[in-house]
Amino acid sequence: MDKALGNKIPEFNKKQGESGGSGLAGLSAFGSGDHRSKLETIVIVLVAVVIIGGTEILLRLFNVPQYILPKPTQIVTALFTEWHFLWPHVVVTLYELLTGFFIGGSIGFILAAVITQFPFVEKVVTPYILLLVTTPMLALVPLLILRFGFGSEPRIIAVALASGPMVMINAATGFRRVDLAKIALARSFGASTLQIFTKIRIPMAMPMIIVGLMVGSIFGLLTAIGAEMVGGAEGLGNRLTYYSALIRMPQFFAIILMLATIGISIYIFFFWFGKKWASWEA
């Protein structure tokens, strides 16, 4: 007999986490289920220490030149000593990301909410949204720069174009999951159409909306960095090309470190958001 199974209390009635239609990221992450144990956390930290420390030791041992691979200590030193040079670019990138994501995300969300109410319109619009999702919006950046110049506008537009359709397509999946019994319930207690939308449809779609926002914002970050590499004189993407051209590798890697931090922060934020607002579905 399977030992693992033998120790489980049979709970056949429990739904085993409906996996149907949970988009790109999957939602099991929001569940109240398995918490990381202390041991696991220790091992995760230990792996990081070993990798970073090992790299440092190996690089020193073999005397690897800085322009090939800088030592972790050099990267951290660069991060702290040149912070005042780097920080303004962080602000620029975050500004582009947040503005573009806000514009794209709101349009995507509203479109999803409206379009799912009209099945015919939805069927007509969906292929075009898919086209927007699958075409890398970075490709449009040179064109946008021609039209809007080297300021932040073309990059904001690119971020909006990259994140909006992502938000929309996931949110639409959420809004499509109508549960007529729940709507009838609200209506039987005298709910208006607006109340049904805010009290039933939105909470029901919330898990998918959060997935859309998470994936959309990561796409937005990618696009913002890429767009900065294409043209202009500011932002973290621009700094990457700048420092690599000057072969200033500690600074280059310091920026990579910051980008990773931004990406992880986005993930943690939406994970927390999902835990708070979508943990019921797990």
Partner: peptide, 24 residues
């Protein structure tokens, strides 16, 4: 109306579920 399968809203706890008709 009382529905089949209780029809509680899974994202609300019990007291919030019961408060729904008042909220509406």
């Amino acid at each position: 109306m009382i529905f089949q399968d209780a029809n509680l809203l899974p994202w609300r706890n019990l007291s919030k579920n019961i408060a729904l008709p008042f909220e509406l």
